[in-house]
Simulated assay, not measured.
Amino acid sequence: MTDSGAVATATAARAAGRQARVARRLGASPFLAEPLRALGYDSREVWGWDMYEAAVLAFAAHCRQAARHEDGLVRLLEIGGGRRPLLTPEQARAAGIAFTVNDISARELAFGPPEFARAEFDVAGAVDPALFGRHDLIVSRMVMEHVRDASRAWANMAALLAPGGVALAFHPTLYAPPFVINRLIPETLTAPALKYFFADRHDGDFPKFPARYDLCRADPAVVEPALSRAGFREVLTAPFWGDRYFRHLPGIREAGDALSSLAERRDWRLLASYAYTIGRR
């Protein structure tokens, strides 16, 4: 076999191995996995970030196909959307989505698009029962690691959903090294470090909030029982490996990439960096 042929064979084998691992990771719930399969979910951290908006739109379409809508509009609630919700009013209108933005801060909500409905409450606190059962899809992005009581937050989301509705949370996971460091080191040290590595993180539009990582795991053995108790009948955890926190640190960057690659191949969920945690009521 020529060198080029050997390289092609090895590349094909790696791709086949990844596809087999992806199939196993999505096997817990064919219904919840369908939008991710259609988008080509592949367990890489960059996919999780780049495809999140597309994933939310795909789940909205999936809810509509499953007859989860009201008068043709999928009722979507974004937890922690504040001043910068995931979708624009134009995108929501084109997708047939009735969009509600949630935040714990009235000030943050006031800066958001006036076209969207607003709901001020703490998802891990007391929620007005009048809101229960009124949403088909609930989404959040980099919010769940900050809540004080994730079990209560998931129970509230189950209550906020109509029967058959879906909740999708994109969050970092323990025990990826950057997030272990973030959890253990005082905020007075981690906040300046975050601003160095990510210059757009500041005390204005993108401040750093205390991270608690309650239930932020990629291990189904931890997540599925907790969400089942919260009121979800189907649960899927889609893990991602890799991060960009050490990209300015040669040596550490390469070691981190190698560890993430090995962890993905071995399916070491404790070293996943992020996950989509998805539940169907």
Rank of each mutant, 00 (worst) to 15 (best):
M157C: 15
L259E: 02
R141F: 11
A126L: 12
L174C: 12
L236I: 03
A66W: 11
L77H: 12
V180L: 08
S29G: 13
A155F: 00
A38T: 09
G112L: 01
A150C: 05
A230R: 02
R93V: 02
E115W: 13
L57I: 07
A255S: 09
L39I: 03
A110L: 06
Q91V: 07
Q19G: 12
F121T: 14
S261A: 15
W47V: 04
D205G: 12
F170S: 06
G80C: 12
G125C: 02
F198K: 07
P250N: 09
A106K: 14
F99M: 14
V46E: 06
H202S: 13
P186G: 05
F170R: 05
L227F: 06
A169K: 11
L270C: 14
P172E: 06
T88E: 07
S260D: 10
L194Y: 11
V147G: 00
D128N: 15
Y213S: 11
T237E: 09
A221V: 01
E187Q: 13
R64F: 10
A15F: 02
R148N: 07
A272C: 13
S105H: 12
Y245T: 12
H248A: 13
D50P: 02
E45T: 05
A117R: 14
I278L: 03
C216V: 00
L57C: 10
L215N: 00
L87I: 05
